[in-house]
Every structure is written in structure tokens, then in C-alpha cells.
Design a protein around this nucleic acid. Structure first.
Length: 459
RNA sequence: GGCUGGAUGGUAGAGUGGCUAUACAGCGGUUUGCAAAACCGUGGACACCAGUUCGAAUCUGGUUCCAGCCUCCA
């Protein structure tokens, strides 16, 4: 097997060689849970779900950890304003996140660690860093000394001087060096806090991922994933903390980062206020359609979210599902050996999902044109086996077109269709068309075929 | 200012030193009581300027423009 991944720390594609072929490890920086999950949170979840599935295709055992950061000043602020318990507040949004991405066909990770469940490990790592001279306590804070780590800036390819010159680093009197970042900070009585050697306080951002990786996956992991916007400072700081605490040269051998989602010509981000929530779009579109759209560009490219692009994804999936529906009775064999090698090759080349999708379209076309039973069985089996790998085409093809939307009165619709079919049998075309119009007014589209009349909701 | 990416047909989006990507939309057709779906066929592109080459959209240099990170962010 020859999986190739773009490794951010090298700035190029590399052949993936795991530390231990019998047990591959990957970690994804999950969300900070203080609000409803948006499609920007969904992209890494979906993209790295594909990587997880591909790794499981190749290797006997993959351990995938995706964390929940449930201690953060934004959580504290919102919970405090609403007068809510912080744990309950963050749990609510963690549950929403998990529910939402499950709609998009994302498998649960093997481990889902929560930051607040790892405070002892965090404190232990900070103590270790202080003892090794990489961190220092000051005014209730503990800071990481970036000058103590010679490779600081290597992952994100930047120099300390340049960053200071940018003058955007937070200046604080307790910092020895402007770019030093916080490992631990003090909490007053209104804020959540834990007792520590430096007083009652809470962890800073970054350290939780280092502590949780170490706890669950080891000192050096195979693949660390996340959004591009996390390369600096989050991942750079994780590398510094972990390598210094664990005395290792590497923290993760492969750093893999997904591109952003754009709204119009701009990155979707909380600070710009142009975010689109997952639970808003799942009201309108099926999870697989959203998943298809998110995977229709290679993961490192930015994706433009628009009405047009989601509509295209919908139409494409409808066509493939229509082909599956036409072959509903064809028996299939589900087997990973049936996934065409062209698709595995595409995915092995840094998750080239657009090529995989082009291949899927070709198979669907072959299925639509298949004349013999054995051809139909072959192509349908290939299509659905590929779908198993990619988390697509898992729905029943008949059900796909009938939205389980409670707004529609299926009994009434089917009654009208029966009346119309009687009229058609009587060749009473005027009445038949009248009923079609009536249903059209209800936003119901009819399709007559040799096997009867189908209906679906107009999109 | 520093560092990353990017610029491909109406739209989205891969890829390649010479060989149809793919999808959605369009156009023509088959089929159909009507309609739809499906299928078949089809047109249409590689930001700009130089260079290397038998040949460049693909390699090299330059130009212009766009986006991201450098502050919380997926």
C-alpha cells in the first residue's frame, strides 16, 4: 500500500509510514464547545473521517482520538452570562456537535477525550515543563518559554523575530518574552478552576491537546489533523509542549491540515459573523448531500459554500440514487475487495476525493447502462462497496426520494396518485392532469414509469 | 512587512510535457397520453508576458490579481 499525505511540517507530500503497522494513531483537534456547530467544524470531521476509514481499510488497527475542548474563556463567558453551569453548558454543545456530524455520516472516534477530564495530566505536564526549564510561573500564570525550544516555529515555518515584528503578540507584564504563551492561568471565584501548585486556576489553550495525546495515544503519534487555521499558534505550541515534555524530536510524524470554507469570497469565521450552522442546513439537505459537497473538493483547497454548489451536490446524488433505485432488486455483495483500485489509488494520493467521485460517477453510469444481470450486480456491488468506504449511498434508494418530512401527508398524496392512475387507466387525461396540478401545488413531483408512479418533494 | 496556497470551460472541480477528467447547467436526440426521470450525442477552458522544448495549460523566470495564517477561529 502506498498512502501519500501532505505533511505540513515538510511542506510536501510524503509516503505514509506508521510507527507501528499494527497500531496506527491519529488525533484530530475537535471543537471548543460553546455554540452550535457550523459547517467549518464539519469539514475536518468529515475529511478526517475519510482518512480514518481509509487507514482502517489499510491497517488492522487504527486508534483515532478526537477531543472536545470544554474549558475555554468563551465557554466561561457565555455560561456566566446565562447563569449556567459550565459543565452542563459545554456538554450541551458537545452533544449537538456529535449529533450534527453523525448526520453527515461521520463515524465516532475510538476515543473522545474531554479537556476537563485531564486536569491532573495537564498539571503533571506543566510541572514537568517547569522542571525541565521550558516553562516558568509568574503571578499565578505559568508560561511556556518559546526561547527554550530551538525548533519553535518550525511547523508553521516562521521565525520568532518576524512574529515579534508583526507586533501582534499579546504583551503582558508577567511574560519574559513577548511570544511566550500561557499554560496555566489563575481563576477568580466566578470562573471554573482547579487547585494546582500555582494556585486555583485553569489550563490555557493548547496544553489540553498535548496532555490528551500523551495519555491516550503516546508520546509520538502518527498523524495529527486539524484546520489550516490551527497551524499557528495552536499546533506549533502543541509541538513545543509535547516535544519538550516528552523529550522527543517529533510530536506527530504527519501533520495534515484541511482548507477553510468560504462564504462568498471570504473565509467563514466566527469573528466575521458569516457562519452557517450544520443544524440549519440539515433541515434542508440530507447529510450525504452535505458530505458529498464537503468532499467534492480536495481537502486542502478551500471550498466555497453556495446555494449553487449544494444544489449541484443534490442533483448529482439524486441521479446516482435514481440509478440505484432502478436497480433496487439487484443483489449485491459488500466487500472491500470490490472497491475499484482506481478509487483506492485516488484516495491514497492525499485523499483525492474529486477523482474518487469521478470514478463513482463512471461506475454509476456503467450500472445505468448495464444490460446483463451479472454486470448490474458487479457495478452495483462496486458502487455500494465504495460507498461503505466513503460513508455514502447508505440510504435506501426508494426512501432517498421520499423525504421523511412531517409536513407532507403521504396518505393523502398516495390516495390522489391512486385516483390519478385510475383516470389514466380510463384515459381521462383531463382529470389526470388536474390531479397532477393539484399535487404540484403541494410541491409534489410525479414520475410515471413502467413500475408505477413515484412521487418526491420538489427541491 | 513575513510565511502559505491559489488563478482551468456558464458554474464547481481534478489532472497531465503530446492522449475525452468528472459533475451541474446548455444544446440536439431516444423514450413518453402529458410531464418528469433516465439514457445517447454535443459545444465550451487552462490569468498575463517572456523563456526552455519538435511540442507547454502542464517546466522555468517575471507580472497582475485573489485567499489564508502571523489575534480567537475548523
Amino acid at each position: 500500500m502506498s498512502l501519500i499525505l501532505h505533511n505540513t511540517s515538510k511542506g510536501k507530500k510524503e509516503l505514509f509510514i506508521p510507527i507501528n503497522e499494527d497500531s496506527v494513531t491519529m488525533y484530530l483537534c475537535g471543537p471548543t464547545v460553546y455554540n452550535y456547530a457550523h459547517i467549518g467544524n464539519a469539514r475536518p470531521a468529515v475529511v478526517f473521517d475519510v482518512l480514518y476509514r481509509l487507514l482502517k481499510h489499510h491497517y488492522p488497527k487504527v486508534t483515532y482520538a478526537r477531543n472536545i475542548t470544554d474549558i475555554d474563556d468563551k465557554i466561561n463567558k457565555s455560561a456566566l452570562e446565562l447563569g449556567l453551569n459550565i459543565k452542563k453548558y459545554s456538554q450541551k454543545y458537545a452533544d449537538i456537535y456529535n449529533h450534527d456530524i453523525e448526520q453527515l455520516g461521520v463515524l465516532p472516534p475510538d476515543i473522545e477525550p474531554y479537556a476537563t477530564d485531564h486536569i491532573p495530566q495537564i498539571i503533571a505536564m506543566i510541572k514537568d515543563l517547569i522542571e525541565k526549564g521550558h516553562a516558568y510561573a509568574a503571578e499565578g500564570h505559568v508560561l511556556f518559554s518559546v526561547e527554550s525550544y530551538k525548533d519553535y516555529g518550525k511547523l508553521s515555518n516562521r521565525k520568532l523575530e518576524d512574529m515579534i515584528a508583526g507586533a501582534r503578540v499579546e504583551v503582558a507584564p508577567y511574560k519574559k518574552y513577548p511570544a511566550d504563551f500561557v499554560l496555566w492561568k489563575p481563576s477568580d471565584d466566578s470562573l471554573p478552576g482547579w487547585n494546582s501548585p500555582w494556585g486555583r486556576g485553569r489550563p490555557g489553550w493548547h496544553i489540553e491537546c498535548s496532555a490528551m495525546c500523551k495519555e491516550h495515544l503516546g508520546d509520538v503519534i502518527d498523524i495529527h489533523c486539524g484546520g489550516r487555521d490551527l497551524v499557528f499558534p495552536h499546533h506549533e505550541n502543541e509541538v513545543a509542549q509535547s516535544c519538550c515534555a516528552n523529550d522527543t524530536q517529533q510530536f506527530a510524524n504527519y501533520w495534515v491540515h484541511n482548507g477553510m470554507i468560504n462564504m462568498g469570497n471570504q473565509k467563514m469565521s466566527k469573528s466575521l459573523g458569516n457562519i452557517l450552522l450544520i443544524n440549519e442546513i440539515t433541515k434542508q439537505y440530507k447529510g450525504e448531500v452535505i458530505r458529498w459537497l464537503l468532499l467534492s473538493a480536495q481537502y486542502r483547497q478551500s471550498v466555497d459554500w453556495s446555494k449553487n454548489s449544494i444544489h449541484k451536490a443534490q442533483k448529482t446524488m439524486d441521479r446516482i440514487y435514481a440509478t440505484l433505485r432502478d436497480n433496487q432488486s439487484v443483489q449485491v455483495e459488500m466487500n472491500k475487495e470490490l472497491i475499484p483500485s482506481s478509487i483506492i489509488q485516488a484516495l491514497d494520493d492525499d485523499l483525492n476525493t474529486p477523482i474518487a467521485f469521478a470514478e463513482i460517477n463512471k461506475i454509476a453510469k456503467q450500472l445505468a447502462n448495464a444490460e446483463t444481470g451479472s454486470d448490474k450486480q458487479l457495478y452495483k456491488s462496486q458502487l455500494l462497496s465504495t460507498g461503505q468506504l466513503l460513508g455514502l449511498f447508505l440510504e435506501d434508494a426508494e426512501q432517498w426520494f421520499i423525504a421523511d418530512n412531517s409536513d407532507v401527508d403521504a396518505d393523502k398524496i398516495e390516495d390522489l396518485i391512486a385516483q390519478r392512475n385510475q383516470a389514466r387507466a380510463d384515459k381521462d387525461w383531463a382529470k389526470s392532469d388536474e390531479i397532477r396540478d393539484e399535487l404540484a401545488a403541494m410541491n409534489i413531483v410525479l414520475e410515471d414509469s413502467a413500475n408505477g408512479t413515484r412521487w418526491s418533494i420538489k427541491k
